[in-house]
Design a protein around this nucleic acid. Structure first.
Length: 216
DNA sequence: ACCCAGGTGGCCC
DNA sequence: GGGCCACATGGG
């Protein structure tokens, strides 16, 4: 199966609308940090706690003590390092951008990406998730689920983050909407098929997605 | 008692 | 360039 067919089949099968729920760009940024190696249910709890405490706010979070933040985001795991990193992010946004997030969607893409990655706790995937979902920028998120799906379907064997990202971005240049939908569909596919035993009977890709899978 | 989760950073070769 | 490890909680 090639990339075109995989994309067509995934998008025909999965409903990806409203897949990253949010009330603000900043909430997407915080959620992107929290969701690292964590289930979204746990992230939702952490975000709910932050919302209730009035901490889904750049200035409030920039002045928040890491111990207090750690208590609130604890369900999302890795709370000690995440609390420091989220506070560092809030301080950067406050000090370097006056708390305005329009630079995500207006600045030079490579420059903004490098700026995000320079911050602690923001690597390739988190930076791209922020650019794509908060900045609506054409940056494909080649998450582990994407690599799994590509590998199983033969679209890209043993691909790396950069190679998978390059493959998609070369095939559909600047198609941010497709990047968003394809990413969400790959995640849903692996969650519903790869981790379910027996696999989802309705999935048209069941034949190329055996259980179990190695992480990565 | 496992295995997994919408990764990152540090270290090693 | 790649492989291994710690980081931590919570659900299946």
């Amino acid at each position: 199966m090639d990339l075109d067919e995989l994309c067509e089949r995934l998008l025909a099968h999965y409903d990806v609308e409203g897949w990253w729920p949010h009330e603000s760009k900043f909430e997407i940024m915080v959620g992107a940090m929290l969701t690292q190696q964590a289930a979204w249910d746990a992230v939702a709890k952490a975000l709910g706690g932050l919302r209730g405490a009035g901490l889904l706010d750049i200035d409030a979070l920039a002045d928040c003590a890491p111990e207090r933040l750690g208590t609130i985001i604890r369900p999302a795991g890795f709370y000690k390092q995440k609390s420091h990193r989220i506070i560092a992010l809030a301080r950067h946004l406050r000090d370097a951008h006056a708390g305005k997030l329009d630079f995500l969607s207006s600045g030079d893409l490579k420059t903004v990406r490098a700026e995000l990655i320079s911050l602690p706790g923001i690597g390739d995937e988190t930076a791209d998730a922020i650019l794509l979902f908060a900045g609506h920028r054409p940056k494909f998120v080649a998450a582990a689920y994407v690599l799994r799906t590509f590998d199983r379907t033969g679209v890209l064997s043993s691909g790396t983050y950069a190679s998978a990202q390059n493959l998609v971005e070369s095939r559909w240049p600047d198609d941010a909407v497709r990047y968003r939908d394809l990413y969400a569909a790959c995640v849903q596919h692996c969650k519903t098929v790869c981790l379910t035993r027996p696999a989802c009977a309705a999935c048209q890709l069941i034949d190329v997605c055996p259980y179990p899978l190695r992480r990565g």
